[in-house]
Design a protein around this nucleic acid. Structure first.
Length: 452
DNA sequence: GGAACTCGCCAC
DNA sequence: AAACGTGGCGAGTTCC
């Protein structure tokens, strides 16, 4: 308990200094991009209002039309147009999220998706940067007292959910954020830290082997899609591996089960293709796992679901048997004592679901690896009088506003602290840790990558 | 007019 | 038996 307190006490101080450092925002850029996005939104909005969908909408809601209202959209699609909802919300209404709308081929629905995407960038990110900045500087908050798993959170603005995967959104949003003049942004993130921490808790031999030497995403993709080879550098085959990773391995570690996973796996199969050009779904049909209709759409996937069930069973009861045993022990212990403990000294009590109990120690401790490193690097930077400053953190990643002349020293320091000092301080770490350091150009924004 | 809720969506 | 973990936030909606 005392070491947990110490970590958060020191952590709060180090994060405070990062908040203090803050980051530069290109105000004129944000305003320019906002205007550009508004133009695009208006363009799509005009097109939308001319559609048949919009006519029905106006007829039904008359003076009360609100194009942003998903309730109204849901009503038009699922009550007026009598479309069967492809998906329901938590409260049982017809869903209008991306996943649902993509399955509806009604002219205008595609425009709504475009409008939403652009507005998200404009209103959630650029608008927030402009609101939060003062004189071209913003200082996102980092909190340690809000999260059940003893991770951190961020707000005003949230620095931890700025777009990354959607390349256009990434460029627009991260393009607004800069280091101090003459400096560069350096980011360092732990690779697969949650899996590494899971190794430490479960001590599962196969998991340790896979995390250190193997490629479990590739292995699982090959089993799930019945492939005899998989080249992850081939653009089509890469998506099979992505399917194994994002459609099976990650969801499974979070506590999902085969029925949901099968759906995700099929989505990835749609965008995957083999080296000889065979589309993913056709490949699955050749293997007898799905039946396709004349249009190439899935008619029946019962065999595939059953196959995923068997792979899941093997995954937990054979491959990662030790992990399963840890899950049982930990869940039983929680039921008996009413709390779950972390290696880092934190104790989580209260009413929790099974998946929460099993995820919290892993998620929390993984963040504590980052936090310990963050504190140590902050301490060294003060002691050595660096001009460079830590200015943010995203769960398993830290960001440093770096003076170019200090770059090489900082790289070495980060590498040493995260992969050598940390495992010494946290003696429960029984697997090697890897850190990936990325450097952005001098005076370059967060979107620009340094060319090597 | 503000609190609390729903829905949707961004990150790890 | 159970059935995807952790957040913040914008916009709409409902309640008081």
């Amino acid at each position: 308990m005392k070491k947990a307190y110490r970590l958060f006490h020191d952590g709060a101080l180090a994060l405070m200094r990062a908040e203090w450092a803050g980051m530069r925002v290109d105000v004129e850029y944000c305003k320019r991009k906002k205007r550009l996005l508004s133009k695009k939104v208006n363009f799509y909005q005009h097109k939308l209002e001319k559609s048949k969908l919009a006519q029905l909408w106006k007829k039904r809601f008359r003076g009360k039309v609100n194009w942003n209202s998903n309730q109204q959209l849901s009503h038009i699609l699922y009550h007026i147009m009598k479309i069967t909802p492809p998906k329901l919300t938590a409260t049982g209404a017809g869903a209008t999220d991306n996943e649902a709308l993509e399955k509806i081929s009604v002219p205008g629905v595609d425009l709504i998706l475009q409008i939403r995407r652009l507005k998200k960038i404009r209103d959630t990110y650029l608008e927030a940067f402009l609101r939060e900045q003062v004189g071209g500087w913003m200082h996102p908050h980092f909190d340690l007292h809000t999260v059940r798993s003893y991770r951190s959170s961020s707000s005003s603005p949230n620095f931890q959910n700025i777009p990354k995967r959607d390349k256009e959104a990434m460029r627009v949003c991260r393009g607004a954020i800069y280091p101090r003049l003459g400096h560069l942004i350096l980011s360092a993130d732990f690779s697969g830290i949650e899996v590494m921490v899971a190794c430490c808790y479960t001590k599962d031999e196969r998991l340790i082997y896979d995390a250190v030497h193997g490629d479990m995403h590739r292995d699982m993709a090959m089993e799930l899609y019945m492939l005899d080879s998989l080249d992850k550098h081939h653009p089509g085959e890469r998506n099979f591996r992505q399917g194994g990773k994002n459609g099976f391995v990650f969801p499974q570690f979070y506590g999902d089960y085969y029925m949901n996973c099968a759906q995700g796996l099929l989505e990835w199969a749609k965008v995957a293709y083999r080296k000889d050009g065979t589309p993913g779904l056709v490949h699955l049909q050749d293997k007898g796992l799905v039946k396709l209709d004349k249009k190439g759409e899935i008619k029946n996937c019962d065999k595939f679901i059953e196959h995923v069930r068997i792979v899941e069973d093997q995954f937990w009861n054979v491959r990662y048997k030790g992990y399963t045993e840890w899950k049982e022990r930990t869940w039983k212990e929680y039921q008996k004592r009413g709390y779950v403990e972390m290696f880092t000294g934190f104790r989580c009590g209260g009413v929790m679901r099974r998946n929460e109990v099993l995820n919290i120690p892993i998620q929390g401790s993984a963040f504590h690896c980052l936090l310990w490193s963050f504190i140590e690097i902050d301490r060294i930077s003060e002691e050595e009088g660096w001009d460079s400053r830590l200015f943010g953190e995203i769960h398993d990643e830290m960001l440093i506003d770096t003076h170019p002349e200090e770059l090489e020293h900082i790289k070495k320091t980060v590498e040493r602290v995260t992969t050598v000092e940390l495992p010494k301080a946290f003696s429960w770490i029984i697997v090697p840790l890897k850190v990936e350091i990325e450097v952005h150009p001098i005076d370059g924004c967060w979107a620009k990558k340094e060319s090597h």
